[in-house]
């Protein structure tokens, strides 16, 4: 059995910060309201950089962390719901920007679970023997798809990117991954694109910004986070005590707190940085992991659970041994 491990990790968020207080000037909301319902205080917003620019910067940081050159990569997988273009893929743009000329590149659309999907794909592609060094990137410029007059959504999201190098290894660093999709609830979180309009017909539906049924998402998220973490721990005979960190998708503190109480797990084990970045969709988990590494919070041998959930609906978990 060929194993895979995380060889390096990096992240990037735009410099410009919009605080809750700044938002009070744009929509009718308040710092207190946003904090108490989401835990978010700041979010970083692009001042013109697109998704591939953020992805490039996170990727260069991950390459440096791994001590690899871009030419050594044989694949680039990029998860995003806010690509630069519908075509070509954002991964192809990153390939050029970092000079990874030997890497085949493609995008994956799996909402906020994108990074977990990539870990699953990378792990299995490496196990197949076909690839050895895969760059996985979660990158989003969500701000370009938000309705900045809708106080229910524009307060929640931020821009950012995180990347990791997944490489063939003697060590079983990415012990397991499980990913899921339930298309029945595809309408809970949507970013629409152009409608059908050609000489034969036209289907109503103007381009619109991101829409989300927040209460239903809360219910879905807390359920799948709890269930999938329990299943992953059970499959590997792990108890709450065996787990050093849980790195959840950074959507909402209330989701994380509720899941922690349901799992009867110490909330301190759930790493959170959503107060600073808001929800950065596919970027949130690698953005958090990279920050944890920089802060020296990750020790060799630590067992870490990652858990994502998002549009699709999609969800998934990964068990990592650092």
């Amino acid at each position: 059995m060929i194993h895979a491990e995380i060889l390096g990790i990096g992240a990037y968020a735009p410099e410009a910060v919009m605080s809750n207080v700044d938002l009070e000037k744009i929509v009718e909301t308040s710092d207190e309201w946003i904090r108490s319902r989401t835990g978010i205080v700041n979010r970083h917003l692009s001042e013109g950089e697109n998704t591939s620019d953020l992805g490039m910067k996170a990727s260069l940081a991950a390459l440096e962390d791994a001590g690899l050159e871009a030419e050594e990569l044989d694949m680039i997988l990029l998860a995003t719901i806010t690509p630069d273009h519908l075509s070509p893929s954002t991964a192809a743009l990153v390939q050029k920007k970092i000079g990874a000329k030997h890497a085949v590149a493609m995008d994956v659309s799996a909402g906020c679970t994108g990074f977990i999907y990539l870990l699953d794909l990378a792990r299995n592609l490496i196990a197949s023997g076909s690839y050895e060094k895969i760059l996985v990137i979660g990158a989003e410029v969500l701000s370009k798809h938000l309705d900045w007059t809708d106080r229910n959504t524009c307060i929640l999201f931020g821009d950012g990117a995180g990347a990791a190098i997944i490489a063939k290894s003697e060590r079983n660093g990415i012990c397991d991954t499980k990913i899921y999709t339930d298309g029945d609830m595809n309408d809970l979180i949507v970013i629409p694109t152009r409608s059908v309009k050609n000489p034969f017909g036209e289907r109503e539906a103007e381009y619109n910004a991101l829409v989300m049924k927040g209460q239903d998402v809360f219910k879905f998220a807390t359920k799948v986070v709890t269930k999938s973490l329990k299943e992953m721990m059970k499959a590997h005979d792990l108890t709450n005590e065996d787990i050093r960190w849980i790195v959840p998708h950074q959507a909402n503190k209330r989701i994380i707190d509720f899941a922690a109480s349901k799992l009867k797990m110490d909330p301190e084990k759930f790493y959170m940085n959503l107060h600073e970045y808001g929800n950065t969709s596919a970027a949130s988990i690698p953005l958090a992991l990279s920050e944890m590494k920089q802060k020296g919070l990750l020790a060799k041998g630590d067992k870490i659970l990652l858990v994502g959930f998002g549009a699709g609906l999609t969800w998934g978990t990964a068990l990592i041994q650092w």
């Binding site: 319902r37 049924k213 209460q215 809360f218 219910k219 807390t222 359920k223 509720f258």
Partner: peptide, 23 residues
């Protein structure tokens, strides 16, 4: 109770009383 408190409540009620609550 805010909207998310209500959802937490709904989930507990669904489990306890074995019903489904439409949002």
């Amino acid at each position: 109770a805010d909207s998310l408190d209500m959802m937490q409540l709904v989930m507990e009620i669904e489990e306890e009383f074995e019903i489904e609550v439409e949002t």
